[in-house]
Amino acid sequence: MIRYALTCPNDHSFESWFQSAEAFDRLTASGRLSCTVCGATEVTKSLMAPAVRPARKAGEAEQKPRPLSAPANPAEEALAALRRKVEENSEYVGMNFATEARAIHDGDAPDRAIYGEARLDEAKKLIEDGVPVAPLPFMPGRKTN
């Protein structure tokens, strides 16, 4: 992917992403690329400064790696803490959640804390049958990128 700063004959400036430089050329030649403000199809590339990371200072490379992202606010911190607590104190049962929850409720499986995934119809049926369940405000770790 490549990002270009673009301008039209009416001096409108905007940016757009393209699969490649050739993709930009094809779209421009076919007239399928237009200004986001006025719709003009005579769009050209503008000068654009590259995004360059500064060089590392001596000793920086040995620092402990940082997480990819950190909670941005107290609500995200609370959700991260909840997730850790659920994952540390419960057993992940995956797509078998509805079956396991019902078996625990009926006494056919050992009583334990579980979490997992269920289809909407399965979750509704559990609630209708009095099985205590609640949705979690996050996806299981195995389901995220």
Rank of each mutant, 00 (worst) to 15 (best):
R56C: 03
R84S: 14
D106K: 11
A55T: 11
I114M: 03
S16Q: 14
I2H: 05
N73W: 06
H12S: 03
D129A: 10
D129K: 11
E15I: 07
N145W: 09
E76L: 13
P110N: 06
E77R: 12
L27E: 11
S20E: 09
N145A: 14
A78F: 04
E42I: 02
K143G: 01
A23S: 15
A80H: 13
R32P: 00
P132F: 06
I127G: 01
F14R: 04
F24R: 01
V86Y: 10
V131H: 01
Y4D: 02
P54R: 15
S30D: 14
F18Q: 06
L136V: 09
K57W: 05
S90F: 10
F138E: 06
A109Q: 07
R53Q: 11
A29N: 13
A72N: 06
E100A: 10
N145G: 13
R119E: 11
G141D: 15
A75C: 00
G39F: 07
P9A: 07
A72T: 12
G39D: 00
F97E: 01
I104A: 07
A29R: 12
N10D: 12
P50L: 08
P140H: 13
N145V: 11
F24G: 08
P67E: 10
W17A: 10
V131I: 08
E62F: 10
P132H: 00
L27N: 05
R26D: 11
G39N: 05
G130T: 10
E60K: 07
H12E: 08
E60H: 08
N73L: 03
G107Q: 04
P137H: 07
P74W: 01
G116W: 04
R102K: 14
I2G: 00
F138Y: 15
S20Y: 07
V43R: 02
R32M: 13
P9C: 12
R32Q: 14
E128W: 05
E62W: 04
A134H: 08
D111K: 15
C38W: 09
S16A: 13
T44E: 13
L79S: 07
G94Q: 07
F138H: 04
G94C: 05
E91G: 03
G130H: 08
A118L: 02
A103Y: 05
S20I: 10
A123Q: 00
A109L: 09
P9I: 08
I2W: 05
G31Q: 11
E15P: 00
G141F: 06
L68W: 06
R112M: 06
G116N: 03
K85N: 15
V133W: 01
E77P: 00
